[in-house]
């Protein structure tokens, strides 16, 4: 249905997670079009290949985010939304907050 659409996603990194992305907190991302909708699992792979600047082991673990990094999709805990299987919608807002940094 939405095969030709592009997915515009706003990614925000907080709590120290931005330090792995050259200190940049806001990332406006246009995902390449694909036949199936993008899901979070694919987004993580894409982030790892295109945005993550250093020490990927501090952000991803296997094909998931590293435990201790919280994920919010449109300001709600992704644990309420299917986590890795969540299918991204155009204009979604994804926030990654590290809890692993000093406080």
């Amino acid at each position: 249905l939405a095969a030709a659409a592009l997915w515009d996603v706003l990614g925000i990194l907080l709590g120290g997670a931005e330090l792995l992305f050259d200190g940049v907190k806001e990332h406006h991302v246009t995902l390449p079009s694909q036949s199936e909708p993008w899901n979070m699992k694919q987004l993580l792979v894409w982030i790892g290949q295109n945005l993550l600047k250093e020490r990927p082991e501090l952000f991803v673990q296997g094909d998931d985010v590293r435990p201790g990094i919280l994920v919010l999709i449109n300001d709600a805990d992704w644990e309420l939304m299917g986590q890795l299987d969540y299918e991204l919608q155009d204009k979604d807002n994804v926030v990654f907050i590290s809890t692993l940094h000093g406080g």
């Binding site: 120290g16 330090l19 940094h101 000093g102």
Partner: peptide, 11 residues
């Protein structure tokens, strides 16, 4: 408003 330090624990 809070401040996050560098990762405190190297994994």
């Amino acid at each position: 408003d809070y401040f996050s330090t560098e990762c405190i624990y190297s994994p």
